[in-house]
Design a protein around this nucleic acid. Structure first.
Length: 345
DNA sequence: ATTAATGATTATCG
DNA sequence: CGATAATCATTAAT
């Protein structure tokens, strides 16, 4: 390994640094103070710190140029909360930045420091390796995905809004003022949700790849002054992707909520209730009062009534359910209407 | 503008 | 699954 050889040479160059000592930050300074110029190490560390800070700030400033996207519903995204609002990149930063980087790379103590960092890392990486991440196929996000697909939000585009509305109106047949209007309205709103969802998703993807690129560039850059294995970069990228996918899940969840609300608003039949026509209620009432002793029409009788009234069987069932309970309430309540304990009806 | 009537939904029970 | 009771959301009536 390249790192290994460099580590070794660097070790000898530093002169007698024992492995046991490296873990303790103070021991490094103590060793330096005795032998080689301590000032150099102090400088070089400071430069590394400065460069790291600056490049991080720069990356963040470029990655999040504007605020978080809009969500529906009330649930705010808790994962979007605390990002450091560090110092904005001033005008002269890049030059200063390049200059310092150059100075650092050319520093004569750099190989030695690199080797020390290699060694420290060699000890700590073992503990990190123990934290192997596994990604179980999250059932939560699977559920959300399935629902979005079923609702046609995340599926393939189904034509423009007006076209879809026209198609719906044409397909509905019958009276054009009844269900087709509401249905097209529903589809329009659904298309709106869908559009927002896709644009947000795209924004997230873009931000994710942008941020990933920045981090990778940063790590590659830093790998010249401190040891970073490709595997670690990979790990970092995986972490970033996980984070962003959790944000995406938030988006999917709020989209699902919006769709649910939309459904309950438009597909709830209570909202488009029409009274049955006079003749239908007459037929139903006739059956009810002529079978008052047993007002429970059989399935067959229900079908016949449904056909006669031009309504569905379940509507007939609803009607008889309502009629029975309301008849009982109106008739049976004379002597002792059921008062509640607090004296109200 | 309030209230009554009414069709539909929901929760609960057997 | 069907019946009931309570409740919702809309329409008709006052």
């Amino acid at each position: 390994m390249d790192d290994q050889t460099r580590m070794m040479t660097g070790l000898t160059g530093l002169g007698g640094l024992q492995q046991a000592d490296v873990g303790d930050p103070d021991s490094v300074r103590k060793q330096q103070s005795l032998g080689q110029p301590q000032q150099d190490i102090g400088d070089i560390l400071q430069q590394i710190m400065a460069i790291t800070d600056e490049s991080l700030d720069e990356a963040q400033a470029r990655c999040w140029p504007e605020d978080s996207p809009a969500h529906w519903g009330g649930s705010d995204d808790p994962t979007e909360g605390g990002r450091a609002g560090g110092g904005m990149a001033g005008g002269g930063l890049p030059l200063n930045f390049q200059h310092r980087k150059h100075a650092l790379n050319c520093h004569r103590m750099k190989p030695a420091l690199f080797s020390v960092l290699c060694e420290i890392k060699e000890k700590t990486v073992l503990s990190i390796r123990g934290v192997q991440e596994e990604d179980p196929p999250d059932p939560q996000i699977m559920r959300l995905d399935n629902m979005l697909l079923a609702e046609g939000v995340s599926g393939p585009e189904k034509g423009g809004g007006s076209a879809a509305a026209a198609a719906a109106a044409a397909a509905a047949g019958g009276s054009p003022t009844d269900s087709s209007i509401e249905h097209s309205d529903y589809r329009a709103k659904l298309a709106q949700i869908r559009q927002i969802y896709h644009s947000e998703l795209e924004k997230y993807e873009q931000a994710c790849s942008e941020f990933t690129n920045h981090v990778m560039n940063l790590l590659r850059e830093q790998s010249r002054t401190r040891p970073i294995s490709p595997k670690e970069i990979e790990r970092m990228v995986a972490i970033i992707h996980r984070k962003f996918s959790s944000i995406q899940m938030q988006l999917k969840q709020s989209t699902c909520e919006a769709v649910m609300i939309l459904r309950s608003r438009f597909l709830d039949a209570r909202r488009k209730r029409r009274n049955f026509n006079k003749q239908a209620t007459e037929v139903l009432n006739e059956y009810f009062y002529s079978h008052l002793s047993n007002p429970y029409p059989s399935e067959e009788a229900k079908e016949e009534l449904a056909k006669k009234c031009a309504i569905t069987v379940s509507q007939v069932s609803n009607w008889f359910g309502n009629k029975r309970i309301r008849y009982k309430k109106n008739i049976g309540g004379y002597p002792a209407p059921c008062y509640t304990p607090d004296g109200r009806l």
